[in-house]
Write a protein that binds this DNA or RNA. Structure first.
Lengths: 195, 195
DNA sequence: TCAATTATGGCATCGAGTGCCAAAATGCAA
DNA sequence: TTGCATTTTGGCACTCGATGCCATAATTGA
């Protein structure tokens, strides 16, 4: 497959570069105190182009999540017929992602992003994140192995709890791994029946 | 204690009334499609006054959460010396609140609000909610009964998971009670150790 | 050279949220 | 009654995120 000679005007702006610049500014001055205009200027693009590449300020932080979502899509397709309990879903979806976070090269960048999330929780309102939820729910929907608890309910709660744990980890979990923090937090939630 | 003859100009605007009107508009047309200007006009106050009474659009939905926060404060103070596990925290804080939701009179209003939350997740970025988290964390902080899992981590995850479950319940949990949905969801999360 | 295509940037506009300030409506003191 | 302090109200202007429209630039293909 050749480079496939694109038709119109070639793209001059580099989205990854822009996102890196923005993340740097966010870290230095705080998410709220950096305006889209400043980012545009720092990245040498027009404000309008910046908004075309990143439809919302949040997208600058979530850059790369689309790739994660695609991995989740593939996994969901591959697991279409498998027998899974909730623990299995966590293992199949979340844990590989978490292990990725714990990789030495990626950990620092992940921490940066998650710290930003913790500081500006509005960032959680993000469509791709919702799609990941939906994919997990769909994967669980076929089977009743999780008892009579509706799979979409579990999926939604699972994603929310996982991200909450991750955000805490990014801010305060210096000593532990992302995976350990998440497992510990989820494990502690179960309401042992003492009425 | 007499009505205590207030000093300045008496307040003309009725916050509760305004919140009711706003909630009605949100339900009919959707949270995003109702502007603060429209709410102000419908409630016969100026836009500026509306923003003074409800500093953000979200506050119109969360109206009344301050009361819940105060109850949580009292409970936290009362439990200052008690021995509690996570299950106990859920019981002491969340369940009374959930039972309140399941009361026939309140259930419909609660559903309305939670449905709005689900439709506009940005609403979760709300300081009183964060304070409730902090109170639960503080209450748990003194004791090591929850193992070596840091209490703030559990508190944060617990609140996030509870609200996620509640929002699902508001949208799709027609048949069940809020309490049952939350208990089921949290119970399903525990990663049973099969690596 | 000309048309189709795609990226860019400028401009206007909307809506949330904030700061500033003048006017209105009260209680209280002189 | 007059004047003062106090509190609410509302108008105005402004910032910032986000969107729509349109002209222009840069490329490929005919």
């Amino acid at each position: 497959m050749q480079p496939a000679a694109k038709r119109g005007r070639p793209q001059e702006a580099d989205p990854r570069q822009i996102a890196r610049i923005a993340l740097g500014l966010f870290e230095r001055h705080g998410f709220d105190r950096v305006t889209m205009g400043e980012i545009a200027e720092a990245a040498s693009v027009s404000r309008r182009t910046l908004f075309r590449l990143f439809p919302s300020k949040s997208d600058l932080v979530w850059d790369g999540l689309d790739a994660v979502r695609d991995v989740v899509r593939q996994r969901a397709a591959a697991l279409a017929g498998a027998e899974l309990r909730v623990a299995g879903v966590l293992r199949e979806f979340a844990e590989p992602f978490l292990r990725l976070l714990d990789a030495p090269e990626a950990a620092e960048l992940a921490r940066k992003r998650l710290r930003l999330l913790a500081a500006a929780p509005a960032l959680l309102n993000h469509p791709p994140l919702r799609e990941i939820e939906a994919l997990i729910a769909t994967t669980m929907a076929g089977r009743t192995s999780s008892g009579d608890t509706p799979p979409p309910l579990v999926a939604r709660t699972l994603v929310a709890a996982t991200f909450a744990a991750l955000m805490w980890w990014a801010e305060h979990g210096e000593g532990m791994s992302a995976l350990a923090a998440t497992r510990a937090a989820l494990g502690a939630l179960a309401p042992t029946d003492e009425t």
